[in-house]
Each structure stands twice: as structure tokens, then as C-alpha cells.
């Protein structure tokens, strides 16, 4: 089962001939044969050396390949347009890896997607990985293995660290989902935890949050009411000073809101076990 993507997903890569897109399209294609096409305006009609057809528009790609998911590697200036193009073409799952999109653009894009009913993951995220079935994005597949732990995170390498630790402890993953570090994004913790809660393969959930916003608090409140599966969490940024953006645009403590302490307290109050160090996560799941 898993969530969001599996071996039946039909994926296109927007920006497939760019430097990032080319590199990661090859990796995704090598991992699982779900990549059915790519889009680069002006390069339509060509085929990549690994056998994936390239189209000029997402609309064409969808008509020709029956794609139902897209992953976006185009630069920040063009990414909002790429997301809207995918939604307009009827793509149901849009994963945007691109970092550095202006917040007001994302507000407009989200409003546009909500009208069209498309699901967005990201931007500024590592994408998702259903071990053994589908890789959409940049999560290194060799650190993961199939299993029953659902992982949702706002971070990239910190997630990899946690997944690596899980795998080494013999705990495989159902799906690993990176929701991204921007203030306005698509799926949030609550959305993904809800999916994990409904997914029969997922028996345990790991959530890795960070300072800024209140996504984690809202998810924790929902967990308390609805989730029977064990949930383990970690929050990065306990030592972060107020008002300084810690890399991610969304990782900032503004006044009293968004502190690690508030998030950890909300999670503990919801029965979520919170690890002090990322490497403690596997032990708390057992």
C-alpha cells in the first residue's frame, strides 16, 4: 500500500533536461520504472539517452503518457508557473523540489491548486520515497528499506539521517515524505499523518519537525484525537535564537511563536515520544 506513490505511479519530470533534473531523473528511473516522460519547453519530440520521451508542455505529456504525478526541478523564477501548468493539465500529485520561491508566489499557487483539487508536496523539499516501489525527488534510496514506519519531515539531510538510523536498526519504511521548509507549502504534517493513519502498511509514524510556524502543534492535536499508531517525533532548533532564519525560509522563531519548546510540549501532550537526538528515534519506536 504505502501512501502517495507506489509502483503504479506514472511520473513526469518537469525540467528533465536541466542539470538537476537530468541528474535526478536518471536516479529515479534507475530506482523504479515509473518515469514515463519529461517536459522541457523547446525540447519536445526528443528522447533521453535512457529512453524517456520529452514533451514541450505538461498537457502533451499527460495526453501521451497518462501521467498522474509530476516532479519539478525548474529554477525558482519559473517554478510557480510549472506547478500551475501541472495542475491545469490534471496532474494529481505535484512534487516541487525547487528552493527559493517567493512566499507570495506560493500563496497564489496554493490558492490556484486548491481550486483545481491537485495535491502539492513542497516546494523546497526532498520529495518522497516508497522503498522498493517509487522514488519521486532526491531522497537517497540506498539508505531506505521497505517496512511499516511512515516518516514525515520538514528537513532533507536530517530525514536521511533518521531513515538511515531506522534502516540500520532493522526498521523499514512504508513511505518517507519530505514536506519542505518553506512557510507556505503543500501537504503539511497533519495531511501526511492522516494518510499514514489510514494506510494499512504503516504501523508506526515518525515526524521530524523544526522551529517556525505551528504545523507540528496542529498535527499533534490531531494525533491526540485520532491516531492509535505509535508516533515518535524530533524537533530541530532547540538552540536557535529568535528572529534568525536558520537556513529554511520557514525555520524562524517570531516572537513567542514557533519555538522548539512549544512544539515539543504540544507533541508530548499528545502522547508523542520526542527524541532528544535524531539517533534515539529507532529505540523509541521499539
Amino acid at each position: 500500500m504505502a501512501i502517495l506513490a507506489d509502483s503504479h505511479t506514472r511520473l513526469i519530470v518537469q525540467g528533465i533536461t536541466g542539470r538537476e533534473g537530468d541528474f535526478h531523473a536518471r536516479q529515479m528511473h534507475a530506482y523504479a520504472p515509473i518515469v514515463v516522460g519529461g517536459v522541457t519547453p523547446g525540447k519536445g519530440g526528443t528522447v533521453t539517452d535512457y529512453g524517456v520521451p520529452v514533451f514541450d508542455t505538461v498537457g502533451q505529456a499527460v495526453r501521451e503518457t497518462g501521467a498522474n504525478a509530476s516532479v519539478i526541478y525548474v529554477p525558482a523564477k519559473f517554478a510557480p508557473d510549472a506547478i500551475m501548468e501541472a495542475a491545469d493539465a490534471g496532474i494529481q500529485l505535484i512534487v516541487c523540489i525547487t528552493e527559493g520561491i517567493p512566499v507570495l508566489d506560493m500563496i497564489r499557487v496554493r490558492a490556484y491548486l486548491d481550486i483545481r483539487g491537485a495535491t502539492l508536496l513542497g516546494p523546497n523539499c526532498p520529495g518522497l520515497l516508497t522503498p522498493g516501489q517509487a522514488k519521486i525527488g532526491i531522497i537517497p534510496a540506498n539508505i531506505a528499506m521497505p517496512g511499516d514506519v511512515g516518516v514525515v519531515s520538514r528537513s532533507g539531510t536530517l530525514t536521511y539521517e533518521a531513515v538511515h538510523a531506522l534502516t540500520q536498526a532493522g526498521l523499514g519504511q512504508s513511505t518517507i515524505v519530505g514536506i519542505g521548509g518553506d512557510p507556505v507549502h503543500g501537504l503539511d504534517f497533519l495531511d501526511v499523518i492522516r494518510m499514514f493513519n489510514d494506510d494499512p502498511q504503516t504501523q508506526r509514524i515518525v515526524m521530524i519537525g523544526e522551529i517556525g510556524g505551528n504545523d507540528e502543534e496542529r498535527a499533534a492535536a490531531w494525533v491526540k484525537e485520532h491516531v492509535k499508531k505509535p508516533v515518535v517525533g524530533f524537533i530541530a532548533g532547540r538552540s536557535a535564537p529568535e528572529g534568525r532564519r536558520m537556513g529554511h525560509a520557514g525555520a524562524i522563531i517570531e516572537g513567542s511563536s514557533g519555538t522548539a519548546q512549544a512544539k515539543i510540549e504540544a507533541m508530548r501532550a499528545a502522547g508523542i515520544k520526542v527524541a532528544d537526538l535524531p539517533t534515539q528515534i529507532p529505540a523509541l519506536l521499539l
Partner: peptide
């Protein structure tokens, strides 16, 4: 550190063991 989340977590770990990070 590579990655913003891991960088933040690294500062936390240093502080956890009684140290003081000079930077993120």
C-alpha cells in the same frame, strides 16, 4: 553541516553536551 535541518540539529546536539556553537 550539509542541510539546514541537520545543521540546526547539530547545534542542538552541541548544546545538549554543554557546548556553545559559534555558527549555523
Amino acid at each position: 553541516v550539509n542541510g539546514a535541518g541537520l545543521a540546526m540539529a547539530t547545534l542542538d546536539i552541541i548544546q545538549h553536551f554543554g557546548g556553545k556553537p559559534a555558527n549555523f
